[in-house]
Amino acid sequence: MSRIGKLPIKVPASVDVTCSGLDITVKGKFGTLQNTIPETLGIEENDGILIVSVKTETRNTRALHGLYRTLINNMVTGVSEQFQLTLNLVGVGYRAAVQGKSLVLNLGYSHPVNMEIPEGISVEVVKNTTINLKACDKENLGLFAANVRSWRPPEPYKGKGIIYEGEIVKRKAGKSGKK
């Protein structure tokens, strides 16, 4: 049995969880999320606590047990608190701005990069070089942040690029001159 899968999920009072068959819907003040669990798993709800249970014990089911417990926990956390990621633009002339439903990045290319902001993600630009992303769906938030970062991943020689908050870029010495 999965050690993570056995842990109970505490549901706050402001969150409404609905289980109908294999479909689970979680509603909160920041949105609504839905997911479908496999047939080999079950969900039990008792007094604001969700427990993901296993119907048949196989190797694949043990792996899915921990996965779906974590996915459901992320759904509950997302609709009650939201997830937040911060990206820092490090480099001369790198800056970002929000224009309508798109994020405009100036990253040293000959043209600005326009990215459409997906539904459910809020983007806030602070001081032109810090981008705060918030969403209730952790998967979509991470995917959008990775797409933004893919335009200028951090490089090891000067440390320039789009860096996650708290990320440490391992620096290299570069080449040495002839003596």
Rank of each mutant, 00 (worst) to 15 (best):
K134W: 04
P118A: 02
T130R: 09
I131N: 03
E119G: 12
V125N: 04
T130S: 05
K55E: 05
T61Q: 14
Q99T: 11
I43R: 03
E45I: 14
V90Q: 15
T58H: 00
G93A: 13
I117H: 13
V104E: 04
T40Q: 09
E116S: 14
L105M: 13
L133N: 05
Y68C: 07
T56V: 03
G42L: 12
Y68W: 12
H111G: 03
A97S: 12
V92I: 15
N46P: 04
T77H: 01
A97R: 13
T77D: 00
G91K: 05
R59I: 11
V104C: 05
E116A: 01
T130D: 08
M75H: 12
Q99S: 04
E119S: 07
N73G: 05
G66C: 09
L103W: 06
T130F: 00
E81R: 14
H65M: 13
M75T: 10
N88I: 06
G78S: 01
M115V: 08
E81W: 01
K127V: 06
V98C: 02
M115H: 05
I51N: 08
M115Y: 01
L133M: 10
G42E: 05
V90G: 02
V52D: 08
G48T: 06
M75G: 06
T58C: 01
T40W: 00
A96R: 06
D47N: 13
D47I: 08
Y68E: 03
E124Y: 04
A135S: 06
T56N: 01
E44Y: 04
K55H: 11
L87P: 01
I43K: 03
G100P: 04
K55M: 14
V90Y: 06
E116V: 02
L103T: 00
E44P: 09
I117A: 12
L50H: 00
L107T: 13
T129Y: 04
L41H: 00
P118R: 07
T40G: 08
F83C: 09
